[in-house]
């Protein structure tokens, strides 16, 4: 009982500390979503605490993903005029991007000889966690592995997104928003808000559309590769 509670407190405390540190030294490799889990993994391995014990406390934090996802309705509501104005660009780019996400993931995974269950677990990785896990279950993947890979996508998306934006000189808020929301779901969306409220809400919409398109198309696309 005590150990899970300690794990819960430690998760929040280390995150708080890392976040403050990141604010002072905003370097990519200090991203809280990279550094905090790394510290916690080392702690668990070092103290021999099994993940189940850790999660018995920490799942209270995970449970907040639900309400945190739902309140994405608020920035969408506030930025409705911008979203309406760019509806066509957003929908067509996200449809294009989320299809590319599934196809390239399955194709590269297949080319690297990863086994079928892993390809099925990887394919919906661009969708937000609850959707990706549901899709993974339907197509025959392993939902818990999908959850970890979705997270990996989020972490890497936060790191790679700004590099892509800089490399291609992407200046448009709509483009920045769809890039983060389609490429890195909710984690990317939180990064998109650093580029402004408009980019953030466009990213929220892109994330929802990506989840929706992924839900509709993954089983179709996977059929071609397995």
């Amino acid at each position: 009982m005590i150990l899970p509670a300690v794990c819960l407190v430690l998760t929040i405390a280390i995150y708080g500390f890392v976040k403050r540190f990141y604010k002072k030294y905003p370097k990519i490799y200090f991203t809280p979503l990279v550094v905090t889990p790394a510290i916690l993994v080392l702690l668990l391995v070092w103290t021999n605490i099994p993940y189940n014990t850790y999660d018995a406390g920490a799942h209270w934090v995970t449970d907040m993903i639900g309400p945190a996802t739902i309140v994405l309705a608020v920035p969408i509501y506030k930025n409705l005029p911008i979203l309406k104005k760019h509806a066509f660009v957003i929908v067509s780019s996200v449809l294009f991007g989320s299809t590319i996400a599934i196809v390239t993931t399955a194709w590269i995974a297949k080319a690297l000889n990863l086994d079928a269950r892993l390809i099925e677990s990887l394919a919906p990785r661009s969708a937000t966690t609850p959707i990706a896990m549901a899709v993974s279950k339907i197509t025959g993947g392993i939902p818990t592995i999908t959850a970890v890979i979705v997270l990996l996508t989020g972490v890497l998306g936060i790191v790679l997104g700004p590099l892509v934006i800089r490399f291609f000189g992407i200046r448009n808020d709509v483009a920045r928003g769809v890039l983060f929301g389609t490429g890195a779901h909710a984690a990317g969306t939180s990064k998109a808000f650093e580029f402004g409220s408009a980019a953030g809400s466009i990213s929220s919409i892109a994330m929802i559309l990506t989840a929706f398109f992924t839900f509709m198309t993954v089983s179709l696309v996977i059929g071609f590769f397995i």
């Binding site: 916690l40 993940y51 850790y54 920490a58 945190a68």
Partner: peptide, 18 residues
């Protein structure tokens, strides 16, 4: 909730130890 979004993903990321 939106500002602390990243915190909520951390336990799942730690799940990689399994």
């Amino acid at each position: 909730l939106l500002a602390e979004m990243l915190l909520f993903f951390i336990p799942s990321a730690v799940g990689i130890v399994q």
